[in-house]
Design a protein around this nucleic acid. Structure first.
Length: 851
RNA sequence: GCCCGGAUGGUGAAACUGGUAGACACAAGGGACUUAAAAUCCCUCGGGGGAAACCCCGUGCGAGUUCGAUUCUCGCUCCGGGCACCA
């Protein structure tokens, strides 16, 4: 596959030339004239991994680049920036393997990424580049943490973590599966460790409410709503028989309390020991130990296929609605992390309770009519029965009445519960932000209560280390930096110990959109006036994989900052768009080994390897491990960045990923070659372009104005694939006509410029323009030019297409109907029939209903 | 299991609030130009029938609403993503 030899379009000289020129001219410097409207378009910034980019990554960047370039031409100040989410575990691991410092690894990876992005001609203002691992950046991450701490939203707590003894480190939930570390297979155990938590649960209601007005994909909003998981119900107090203890449970169905036949505590519930009778003590303890060894994740992930387990404590609780004693059980189908860690079970109307009751022979009492509770739990609607004063009521009324009853009898209240948990914010890792926290060093060498360092002590810089693994006793790696860890209070001289946990990778990405506003200021995190001008982000484009975590965490910080009066908007990202994942063909043999495209041969219908064994070909997500990545650098070499940019968006709608095909890039290259020839000719004597001073034909003009209209709309709707098709149609029309006016070509280059900036600039200058096309005005389309004198009307008989007629665009209904009836084929189908109905759709079709 | 998306030619895909299914591109085939090749330009390109005009069938499957359904409704199948004992 190669590009045309005769064409004068040589991307290898044009693209570097204009990239250099734009850089010299500072063409993408963000404007500061605040009288102009602003547009903040943001890409989810990447984690600079060691392997570099493949062609799937820049799809979103190209889309935002087109929006940015077009908006500049439309007269907006555009904030268009790029940075690096550069703290994180992979760099730390890579550094460990190479025996270098994570900072060096990071710098090298950033350089690779940046080089690849720059070749694509993306119009970032690189003077605003940031990296979360730079001291000048993380100083302000620490500053925000102080705000959270001061507001009581950061606290320490003992929580279970995934501890991997072999690696001597704590692992994230997503790194653990089936009790082992997914990468090495080393076993992971649960340990309770003191961890920093952020109280995101305080913002559950705020985060839920804020979603309504956001211009986000409905699916993402739904996922966040589900993640937050608001449920209304009641908290009910059950006193324990013959004891002063009482158990509090949360339920969304307080109306079924009369059907409560037992109570269940989570194995970790603090009352388990005190309610267990001496006779049951051994059994309960054995059960709890076993449950403790299974991680929360395991307990939950295999839940559906597992039969329920549990053990009776020996005691009874008193049901407050009827004073009946019901047994108290311990079972791991109740989770300590949700509600109160205890439930009352109503097996007749809850699937899980039903299964458990069946398993252990516990009674099942129907309290809502409508099902058959001997067969299965009934969760549908129906009148209450066997429920005393609730009998006959529907669910909503029964709930109201029972809550009134509970409140009147001091046995419970109506409450709201959330599925959302507090955010585990500390990591026992090196390559992250140190926490701006110190503890008094007590006489025995242990740590006292945490307190914040003063703002003037920021940044708390990350000390240099050579060994990044946690210490033998499980302390984070920063504990090795003894000199750094031991410090003194600058005012009192008190001995202090620095916090040795670092922040998770999410921290830096939580607020980077704010730092881009004033990236080079070291006196403030962001300038308040500039913040008020630029925020919120008008368009945020990135992968759907961040639907909950990153987007929820960022919103949380923004809400807190808004409550503190530090930012002007409550929501950070007004409009969100998820670009799709790019797929490519992969080749795999029976053993599951992958092959590169170059290693396989076509054979009949399929492909074989060198040994002639048939291979399975599949369309899979593009990734290094599947041997199906395409490097954007290769595409830039072969076809040029402009062709690559066009293909990224032409291949499919932005929200669908699409299947990569190098031949498609060639197709875009052919299109650009035709654009070149229209203006420059093919380099031979007999053809020196198609430009005329006279006006283009009506057909050519119609195609041009249609393209202008659709490209203009696409800047807003992001439907670039069809916009590009319309530009192609114009170029095909103009090529066929062999003549197009200089003026029209001038207009066309301006709508092409956001897509293929290098070629457009080259040809723009060839037309005699002296200012850069980057700063040219956006062309308007002329509605009148879109209309044609005649239109084609489809003619149907009984809903089937029988002919087409050509009529004047302004022909009235009677004229059109007459012409339709006269059409040869149509008249044949109408012959001998009576027309019962004439359907007339102006400008489109007529349909005769006849029999 | 639950929630959210999808399914259209050999391929990626178009089709605006129900109105000419397959724009545009890739691949394939044919032709022109050329000593030849590349490039370029032109033609064909959902399936079947027919010399042609045209006809029949066709948007995952099965029903329905309608003059008319890729589009709306109901019931399925398959694929992708998310959540998964959340009381």
């Amino acid at each position: 596959m190669s590009v045309s030899g005769m064409s004068g379009y040589d991307h290898k000289t044009i693209e570097p030339r204009w990239q250099d020129r734009w850089q010299q001219q500072d063409a993408y410097r963000v404007g500061i004239d605040k009288s102009k409207p602003k547009y903040y378009v943001l890409d989810m910034f990447p984690y600079p991994s060691g392997v570099g980019l493949h062609v799937g990554h820049p799809k979103g960047y190209v889309a935002t680049d087109i929006v940015a370039r077009a908006r500049r031409m439309m007269g907006h100040n555009v904030l268009r920036v790029m940075g690096w989410d550069s703290f994180g575990l992979p760099s730390e691991r890579q550094a460990e393997r190479e025996g270098t410092h994570p900072r060096d690894v990071t710098d090298r990876n950033v350089a690779t990424f940046k080089g690849q992005l720059q070749r694509l001609g993306l119009s970032y203002d690189w003077s605003r580049e940031i990296a979360t691992s730079d001291v000048g950046y993380y100083k302000w991450t620490q500053w925000i943490f102080l705000k959270l701490f001061e507001k009581g939203l950061a606290y320490e707590a003992d929580v279970p973590v995934n501890w991997c003894p072999a690696l001597g480190t704590v692992l994230a939930n997503e790194e653990v599966k089936d009790g082992v570390y997914i990468e090495t297979g080393d076993p992971v155990e649960r340990r309770s460790m003191r961890q920093w938590m952020l109280k995101i649960t305080d913002y559950a209601e705020s985060l839920l409410a804020g979603l309504d007005d956001l211009d986000w994909p409905e699916g993402v909003k739904e996922m966040q709503r589900h993640w937050i998981g608001r449920s209304e119900g009641a908290s009910v107090k059950f006193s324990v028989q013959d004891s002063t203890d009482s158990v509090e449970v949360f339920t969304t169905r307080p109306d079924t309390l009369f059907g409560g036949t037992y109570l269940v505590l989570a194995p970790e519930h603090p009352l388990v020991t005190s309610v267990t009778t001496a006779k049951q003590a051994d059994a309960v303890q054995a059960y709890c130990v076993e449950a403790a060894n299974r991680s929360d994740r395991d307990r939950q992930s295999d839940a559906p296929d597992h039969t329920k387990t549990g053990v009776f404590t020996g005691s009874y609780a008193i049901n407050p609605v009827n004073d009946e004693p019901i047994p108290i059980w311990v079972a791991d189908y109740v989770l300590m992390g949700y509600g109160t860690g205890a439930i009352f079970a109503c097996p007749a109307h809850d699937d899980r309770d039903f299964e458990f009751a069946r398993q252990f022979g516990l009674p099942i009492i129907e309290v809502v009519a409508g099902g058959n509770v001997d067969e299965a739990a009934y969760t549908g609607p129906g009148p209450h029965v066997n429920s005393g004063f609730l009998d006959g009521l529907d669910e909503a009324d029964a709930k109201r009445k029972i809550i009134d009853f509970l409140e009147a009898n001091d046995a419970g209240t109506g409450t709201v519960n959330y599925r959302l948990r507090d955010w585990l914010f500390s990591r026992q890792r090196y390559w992250g932000e140190p926490m701006p926290i110190v503890h008094p060093e007590l006489a025995d060498g242990s740590r006292g209560a945490p307190r914040a360092v003063t703002e003037s002590e920021l940044p708390v810089t990350l000390p240099d280390l050579t060994d990044y693994r946690p210490t033998e006793d499980g302390a984070p790696p920063l504990a090795r930096a003894a000199q750094w860890m031991h410090t003194i209070d600058p005012e009192t001289g008190e001995a202090l110990l620095r916090e040795t946990n670092t922040m998770p990778q999410w921290a830096g990405s939580c607020w980077y959109y704010l730092r881009f506003i004033s990236p080079n200021r070291d006196d403030v995190a962001w300038d308040p006036e500039d913040e008020a001008y630029w925020m919120p982000v008008d368009l945020y484009v990135g992968g759907a994989e961040h639907a909950t975590l990153h987007l929820l965490y960022s919103r949380f910080w923004q809400h807190v900052l808004h409550d503190l009066g530090l930012v002007s908007t409550r929501e950070p990202f007004q409009r969100l768009f998820n670009q799709g994942m790019v797929h490519a063909t992969s080749f795999k043999d029976e053993r599951g080994k992958y092959y590169y495209r170059e290693e396989v041969k076509e054979a009949g219908d399929g492909f074989v390897n060198d040994a002639g064994e048939p291979l399975v070909t599949r369309r899979e997500k593009m990734s290094k491990s599947r041997y199906n990545v395409v490097n954007p650098d290769d595409m830039c070499d072969q076809f040029g960045a402009d062709s690559l940019r066009l293909y990224e968006l032409f291949m499919s709608p932005l929200e669908d990923g699409g299947d990569w095909d190098n031949a498609g890039v060639l197709g875009m290259r052919r299109f650009l070659d035709r654009v070149w020839r229209l203006i420059m000719g093919d380099g031979t004597e007999r053809d020196s372009g198609a430009l005329t001073e006279a006006a283009s034909s009506a057909d050519v003009q119609r195609a041009l104005h249609n393209a202008i209209r659709n490209v203009t709309e696409a800047v807003d709707t992001l439907k670039f694939n069809t916009a590009i098709a319309d530009m192609i149609v114009f170029v095909n029309e103009a090529t066929k006509a062999k003549a197009v006016s200089r003026n029209d070509m001038n207009r066309f280059l301006r709508i092409l410029a956001p897509f293929a900036p290098h070629l457009a600039e080259e040809l723009w200058q060839a037309l005699g323009e002296t200012n850069s096309i980057v700063a040219a005005d956006w062309p308007e389309f002329d509605e009148a030019k879109l209309k044609s004198d005649t239109i084609t009307i489809a003619v149907q008989v009984m809903g089937k297409l029988r002919g087409k007629i050509e009529v004047d665009a302004d022909a009235d209904k009677d004229t059109v109907l007459a012409a339709a009836k006269a059409e040869e084929n149509v008249s044949r189908f109408l012959e001998g029939k009576t027309i019962r109905k004439e359907v007339f759709v102006p400008g489109r079709l007529v349909n005769f209903v006849a029999n």
